[in-house]
Amino acid sequence: MTSATSLFSSIEADLRLLTENLKQLVGARHPILYAAAEHLFGAGGKRLRPAIVLLISRATMPNQDITPKHRRLAELTEMIHTASLVHDDIIDESELRRGVPTVHTSFGNRVAVLAGDFLFAQASWYLANLDNLTVVKLLSEVIKDYAEGEIQQGLNRYDTQLSIDAYLEKTYYKTASLMANSSKAAGVLSGVSPEMAIKLYDYGRHIGLAFQIVDDILDFTGSSDSLGKPAGSDLKSGNLTAPVLYALEEKPYLETLIEREFAQAGDLEQALALVEDSQGINRSRQLASHHAQQAVQSLTDLPPSDCRQALIELADYVLSRLY
């Protein structure tokens, strides 16, 4: 299995610089906000989103170095993603993220909400300073989409009538919008054609959907240690993902358990067993694979390069997390 480290070897130096710059970008004068940011950016993670921006930037600027605006876009992508995680963890009442205590666990809810808001605001300010209206519009859309996705997820808790299309729409808003719009923005900064910009958007959209569907499968098949949170936590909180929605088509009793919000002893364990005993996980794998293939298709017109190859292999990497 390819590791994220070897996959991103062509942009290793870019990612090191990105990590250094992120802490400086936050530069909060308030020590607690700065400590919260240090805690976030020090928690590791694969830096998948900025890596995609940097790979696309280099793939669309062959024989030239990428610009400071490309680098700043990658940094802003990670800032927006991190801000969304802080708020996500508060809403989900998660105590751990990547095995490390979450911001609200360490600093309290009030500081965590403000830290997330601060990161969104700081990202918006730096975004405006890119002086590129198209890019500003693309990344502003992401922040709007993220809020829309959170609202949809909140309104649809324990809703057994939720369709796969509605699930994919919410997944786009919460996860894939950032990858889609930042991929397109990287191309815009490189001066690609409008047609190529759309294909880069499609790449980010499909890779984002595949990534989140895999995450949703791992919520059932991964161990608590590897997930950094308890397995089955999405289902427990009423967030119905692809494996559950597919399982509901086969297992009518699952609907009863979900609609009473696992109120009785053993309900959650029974629900997890029903999902496992259905075709839900298998069909979700096929859905993730479909989107990964679509992502690769979107790159056919990009000139061959190491960075293009890494973007193609990234689709395999996303799926390989399942095995």
Rank of each mutant, 00 (worst) to 15 (best):
Ser3Glu: 04
Ser6Val: 07
Ile11Cys: 05
Arg16Ile: 13
Gln24Thr: 13
Ala36Ser: 09
Lys46Arg: 13
Arg49Trp: 12
Val53Ile: 13
Leu54Gln: 01
Ile56Tyr: 03
Ser57Trp: 10
Ala59Phe: 00
Pro68Tyr: 06
Pro68Asp: 03
Lys69Ser: 09
Ala74Thr: 06
Thr77Arg: 03
Thr77Leu: 07
Met79Ser: 09
Ala83Lys: 00
Ala83Ile: 04
Asp89Glu: 11
Gly116Tyr: 09
Phe120Arg: 02
Lys137His: 13
Leu138Met: 08
Glu141Asn: 11
Ala147Pro: 06
Gln153Asn: 05
Gln153His: 09
Leu155His: 11
Arg157Ala: 12
Gln161Glu: 14
Asp165Cys: 07
Asp165Trp: 12
Thr171Leu: 05
Thr175Gly: 08
Ala176Lys: 01
Ser183Cys: 02
Gly191Asn: 11
Val192Cys: 03
Asp202Val: 03
Gln212Tyr: 05
Leu227Pro: 01
Leu227His: 09
Gly228Phe: 05
Gly228Val: 04
Leu235Thr: 03
Ser237Val: 13
Gly238Gln: 11
Asn239Tyr: 06
Glu250Asp: 04
Glu259Val: 07
Gln270Ile: 07
Ala273Ile: 10
Gln279His: 07
Arg283Lys: 14
Gln286Pro: 08
Gln293Cys: 07
Gln294Ser: 15
Ser298Leu: 11
Asp301Leu: 06
Pro304Cys: 10
Ser320Arg: 14
Arg321Met: 06
Leu322Ile: 12
